[in-house]
C-alpha cells in the first residue's frame, strides 16, 4: 500500500497541477466548441435568442417608462372658476394659487381667452357662433412643481384648490398617465414571466447539449474512471463547456439587442421628433450588459451542473 500512495506527486505539485488542470479543462472545453462549429453555433443561436427576447422586452419597457416619465412632468390641473368671478378677480386668484408652495405656475384664462383657444383648437368655431353666449367657464391652468408631480400629491393639490373661494372644480389631467403606468406594470410582470420561462429554456438547452456531450464521450469517461479519475476531474470539462455556452450565448444576445437598438433608434427619434421630443432609445448600459452576461453564465453552469449530476454517475466502467 506504500506503493499506492508512493505513486502520487508531492502535495505542492498536485496543488499546482489542480490549477493547471482547471485551466486545461477550460481551454479544452473551448476547443471542443471550436472543433464542432456547426453544432455549437446552433446551440449558441438558440441560447442567444432565448436571452435576447426578454432582454429586448425589458429594454423596451425601460424606454417606455423613461418616455412616460417625461410626460408625467406635463401633469396639469384645470381649475374652473365660477361665472361670478370677474376678470380682475381671476387674475388675483391666479396670483394666490401661484403663491402656493406646490405650484410652479398658474396661468389665468378668462372666458374670452378660453373661447378663443377652443375656437382655434377644436374646429367647432362655427358651431360656437350659433350660441348666443359664451358657454365656457374661466379657468386657471396650474402646473405643480416637479416634486409634486406624483398622482397622490396632485390629487391632494386638487382638493386644496377646490377649497378656494370662487373655484367650482379642479380637474386633474393625468388619468391617462395612470392608465399607462398600470399598463406598463402589467407588461413588466409579463416580461418577468417570459424571462423566467425562457431562462428555464436556456437551462434545458444547455443541459441537453451537455447530456449529449457526456453520452458521446462515454468511453472516455469509463477509461478515466478506470485509471482513477475523481468525479470532479471528469465533471470539470463539462461544467466549463456549459460556462462557455452561457458566456458566448450571452455575448451573442447582447449583440442582437445592440443591433435591434441601432435599427430602431432612427425611427424612434423620428417619432419622438413628431411629438416635439428629443427622446432617444437607451441601451442596457454597463450594469445591464453585465447582468445579462452574468445571468447567461449562471444559466449555462446551472444547466451543465444538472446534466452532469444526473448522468456522470450512471457511467461506470464495465
Amino acid at each position: 500500500m506504500s506503493r499506492a500512495r508512493g505513486n502520487a506527486p508531492p502535495i505542492h505539485t498536485r496543488f499546482q497541477a489542480w490549477g493547471v488542470n482547471h485551466a486545461q479543462a477550460l481551454v479544452f472545453s473551448l476547443g471542443r466548441l471550436y472543433r464542432n462549429p456547426f453544432g455549437a453555433a446552433l446551440t449558441l443561436a438558440v441560447i442567444a435568442i432565448a436571452l435576447a427576447l426578454p432582454s429586448g422586452l425589458w429594454l423596451a419597457l425601460k424606454n417606455l417608462q423613461a418616455a412616460s416619465g417625461d410626460w408625467d412632468h406635463g401633469a396639469q390641473l384645470s381649475v374652473f372658476v365660477a361665472d361670478s368671478v370677474t376678470d380682475p378677480a381671476l387674475v388675483q386668484l391666479a396670483g394666490r394659487i401661484q403663491a402656493l408652495e406646490a405650484v410652479e405656475r398658474a396661468q389665468p384664462l378668462t372666458r374670452e381667452d378660453a373661447l378663443a383657444e377652443f375656437r382655434a383648437l377644436s374646429g367647432f368655431g362655427e358651431a360656437l357662433d350659433l350660441l348666443d353666449h359664451n358657454p365656457l367657464p374661466a379657468l386657471v391652468l396650474v402646473t405643480p412643481v416637479p416634486a409634486h408631480q406624483g398622482p397622490a400629491e396632485v390629487q391632494a393639490l386638487a382638493r386644496q384648490l377646490e377649497a378656494l373661494e370662487g373655484v367650482t372644480q379642479a380637474q386633474v389631467d393625468m388619468q391617462w398617465v395612470q392608465r399607462l403606468q398600470a399598463l406598463l406594470e402589467m407588461t413588466r410582470r409579463g416580461v418577468v414571466l417570459v424571462a423566467i420561462l425562457l431562462g428555464l429554456g436556456v437551462l434545458l438547452v444547455v443541459g441537453n447539449t451537455i447530456r449529449l456531450d457526456i453520452l458521446n464521450r462515454r468511453r472516455e469517461i469509463e477509461v478515466a474512471k478506470l485509471v482513477g479519475a475523481t468525479d470532479g476531474f471528469i465533471r470539470r470539462p463539462f461544467l466549463y463547456g456549459g460556462l462557455w455556452l452561457g458566456l458566448f450565448g450571452g455575448l451573442l444576445a447582447l449583440f442582437i439587442v445592440g443591433l435591434a437598438l441601432v435599427l430602431l433608434n432612427g425611427p424612434v427619434q423620428q417619432l419622438a421628433a413628431l411629438y416635439g421630443s428629443d427622446f432617444r432609445l437607451q441601451g442596457p448600459g454597463f450594469s445591464g450588459a453585465l447582468g445579462l452576461l452574468g445571468t447567461a453564465v449562471a444559466l449555462g453552469l446551472g444547466g451543465s451542473w444538472i446534466a452532469v449530476g444526473r448522468h456522470l454517475r450512471e457511467i461506470e466502467p464495465q
Binding site: A8, P9, T13, A17, V20, N21, V227
Partner: peptide, 13 residues
Amino acid sequence: ALPLVILGYRRPE
C-alpha cells in the same frame, strides 16, 4: 499520459 494527468503530475514529468 492520462493516469498521470489525473494524478496531477506536471508536463515535463
